[in-house]
């Protein structure tokens, strides 16, 4: 898989179709080529789907739930960013990810607790609780990440 990612990253590097609309648009996708965006989409989607299929294979179902917190988006992003920005840039991202992961713990715990105690419909709670992730991540950003 890592070999495949290497190929994808190189393909993204070769593609040089830059967006040339406005100055703001150029700033936004300054180093993100269309090829790189496509590579991100396919690699991220593939890793998420692969981890989900692996999770489906396991019983009991609470063990399969571990794969809902698989580092699929992180792996795809890191693999493609390494080619452009280098290991030190990705290491900084990984350090911030610690706070994101703590926010994820809060999110999943809140969802499990509310579903257990209040017996609501699961999907609206799982979506609404994303606000918990946002609040904890923002607090962690302000307290720990930003001052670094």
């Amino acid at each position: 898989m890592f070999f495949m990612c290497d190929k994808l990253g190189r393909a993204a590097k070769k593609a040089t179709t830059y967006t040339r609309s406005s100055r703001a648009g150029n700033r936004m996708v300054n180093f993100l080529t269309v090829g790189e965006l496509v590579a991100r989409f396919f690699l991220g989607g593939a890793l998420v789907a692969i981890f989900a299929v692996i999770g489906d294979l396991f019983t009991p179902k609470s063990f399969a739930g571990l794969f809902a917190a698989a580092p699929s988006v992180a792996l795809a992003t890191m693999l493609l960013t390494l080619h452009k920005e280098g290991a030190s840039f990705v290491a900084v991202e990984a350090r911030s990810m610690i706070v994101g992961a703590l926010a994820f713990t809060a999110y999943a715990s809140v969802v499990a607790w509310v579903l257990h105690r209040r017996r609501p419909r699961p999907t609206p709670i799982a979506v609404a609780a994303l606000a918990v992730w946002g609040v904890v991540a923002a607090a962690g950003w302000a307290l720990f990440v930003r001052p670094l």
Binding site: M28, V29, N30, F31, L32, E36, L37, R40, F41, F42, L43, G44, G45, A46, L47, V48, A49, A52, A68, A69, P71, S72, V73, A74, A76, T77, M78, L80, T81, E85, F89, V90, V92, E93, A94, R95, S96, M97, V99, G100, A101, A103, F104, Y107, A108, L130, W133, A137, G140, W141, V145, R146, L148
Partner: peptide, 29 residues
């Protein structure tokens, strides 16, 4: 999964590695 990965990449480019790193653990799925 693909859309979130693209969004994380754009967010990191628009902000910084420090801010983008937070999004690597977003419970998207």
């Amino acid at each position: 999964g693909g859309l979130v990965t693209v969004a994380v990449g754009l967010f990191t480019k628009a902000t910084s590695a420090k801010a983008g790193g937070l999004m690597l653990a977003i419970p998207s799925i």
